[in-house]
Design a protein around this nucleic acid. Structure first.
Length: 438
RNA sequence: GGAGAGGUGCCAGAGUGGUCGAAUGGGUCUCACUGCUAAUGAGUUGACCUGGGAAACCGGGUCCGAGGGUUCAAAUCCCUCCCUCUCCGCCA
């Protein structure tokens, strides 16, 4: 949520900044207008309330001094004001609600550093890495020389080895739900252990609830705009989380932290549920797009001053996992048009899938500024000035497993059809070196 | 799911229609005292919206789980909902 005061005081630069992500200026003009009217109405309301309050005090005086009789005319006057008051109360209330509803639908202002663009085609590739070539800047990606036997898509590899069973998953739950079996399932678990252990030096491990209230979904910006994307349990008015970002952000909802407590680093493993409405048929083969997948998330609360460094830390942690897994990836600096609703700046990590020839998004590392903190009302008290300010939130996937799983089984496929298990996972897989060919 | 109790400030806890943003105790911070620590004494200590001011600050409004209602006036009375605890039932 934007700070209404910024919109009020600097409408033009808010318009300009949001135009880069396609928000029409009229939306902001309307908001500005609503704000003016809301303030006028609430001022009027407060004046009337002040009058009623002071009359009530007078009445109390009279009652105490036993002059109940003479209070009657005051009562009459107050009743009359009360009628006018209730009209202004409902008018001000409506306008305040209108203002909040509008504010909840307006996306965050992009960072000045985010590349300006009109579509995802304008995302900037800032660097790439492969086990053979190491780290390079964004120009001229040189893919490893994949063998033919690595060019088999993971859904074929998976069913051939009996480690991925999409047919039966569909029988159970429908399409776009995965089911891992045998060592395929073990590898998912190994990835989870691997990642959580990797973050355990600095991050508190959380196992949060995966069904959450409406207010929790609003705090991160997933509602009200993206209602269609979320699974909802109507009977109990709960939503299935699309990412652990949702419960982890609300962990400190309505709290005032001490500056010394910051930064707070949290990590969580959860299933993530997405309806993927509107993306039917697009890149849905195999594990490319799923209604349910597992993910380890890393998330931080920081002061505004700590945010930039934390953003870099989260990104490097996600990259580090990919490097340890030996997977070729590239880093994208998302342009203003492709930025998520709540984000000021986002880096996506995409792994190259040799079996499909696609770059698959496996992590998204974002800085939200105070946008989510404002919605969730998470603040901190500055130890220097003693003032209360909103914190900044940041998070990233580290990492999203289904797609990683896909890239691993393709990349590590050997000529005999078996899969070599990445070194770092073996300790979590009973020291096995291979998933054997059938 | 059934029965009961309860949700008040940083914490504990009082308050059943006006003098209550709220007693008291603890904690916090400041000062005094003290060789130091402790103890003691005095003071201090909420958030949000809004108007004025460069600021310190000053004025108005809101907030006692949430939302409605009654009343000139609600922490206090009424209704609905949420949550917590205890017991019973059920259950991994």
């Amino acid at each position: 949520m934007l700070d209404i005061r910024v919109v009020r005081d600097d409408l033009d630069s808010v318009k300009r900044a949001l135009a880069t992500r396609g928000v029409d200026a009229s939306v902001l003009d309307e908001l500005w207008d609503t704000d003016q009217r809301a303030r006028a109405a609430s001022t009027k309301r407060d004046e009337l309330r002040a009058e009623v309050n002071s009359i009530s005090k007078e009445i109390a005086q009279l009652m105490r001094s036993g002059m109940a009789e003479s209070a009657e005319s005051l009562r009459e006057r107050s009743r009359a004001i009360g009628e006018e008051l209730s009209q202004w109360e409902s008018r001000a209330g409506d306008l305040e609600t209108e203002r909040r509803d509008a504010l909840l639908k307006i996306p965050n202002i992009p960072s000045r550093e985010a590349p300006v663009g009109a579509s995802e085609a304008d995302n900037v590739i800032v660097r790439w890495w492969s086990p053979e070539s190491g780290m390079h800047d964004g120009s001229d990606i040189k893919l490893p020389d994949y063998e033919d036997y690595q060019r088999k898509p993971h859904w074929e590899v998976g069913s051939e080895l009996g480690i991925l069973d999409l047919e039966r998953a569909a029988k159970i739950s429908g399409s776009m739900f995965p089911m891992f079996r045998g060592l395929g399932a073990t590898m998912e678990r190994a990835l989870t252990y691997f990642a959580l252990d990797a973050h355990s030096d600095a991050f508190e491990e959380i196992r949060p609830p995966t069904l959450v209230r409406t207010a929790t979904m609003i705090s991160t910006g997933h509602l009200p705009k993206f209602e269609e994307d979320a699974y909802r349990l109507e009977r109990d008015d709960l939503y299935a989380i699309p990412t652990a970002e949702v419960p982890l952000t609300s962990l400190a909802k309505d709290e005032i932290l001490r500056e010394e407590e910051l930064p707070v680093r949290l990590t969580a493993f959860t299933s993530c549920f997405r309806r993927e409405a509107g993306s039917a048929g697009r890149d849905t083969r195999g594990l490319l797009r799923l209604h349910e997948f597992d993910k380890v998330e890393i998330l931080a609360y920081t002061t505004p001053a700590q945010a930039a460094e934390m953003h870099a830390e989260l990104l490097s942690r996600a990259e580090n996992l990919l490097q340890q897994l030996g997977l070729t990836y590239r880093v994208l600096d998302l342009c203003t048009a492709d930025l998520g609703n709540s984000s000021k700046r986002t880096f996506d990590l995409e792994c190259y899938s040799p079996g499909t020839g696609l770059w698959l998004e496996v992590s998204s590392v974002s800085w939200f500024g105070d946008y989510q903190a404002r919605r969730a009302n998470i603040r901190f008290r500055s130890s220097e000035t003693n003032q209360i300010e909103f914190i900044h939130t940041l998070n990233g996937s580290a990492l999203a497993w289904a797609r990683i799983w896909a890239v691993i089984v393709e990349t590590y496929r050997l000529s005999d059809g078996s899969i070599s298990i990445p070194e770092v996972l073996r300790v979590y897989m009973r020291n096995l070196e291979k998933i054997p060919a059938k």
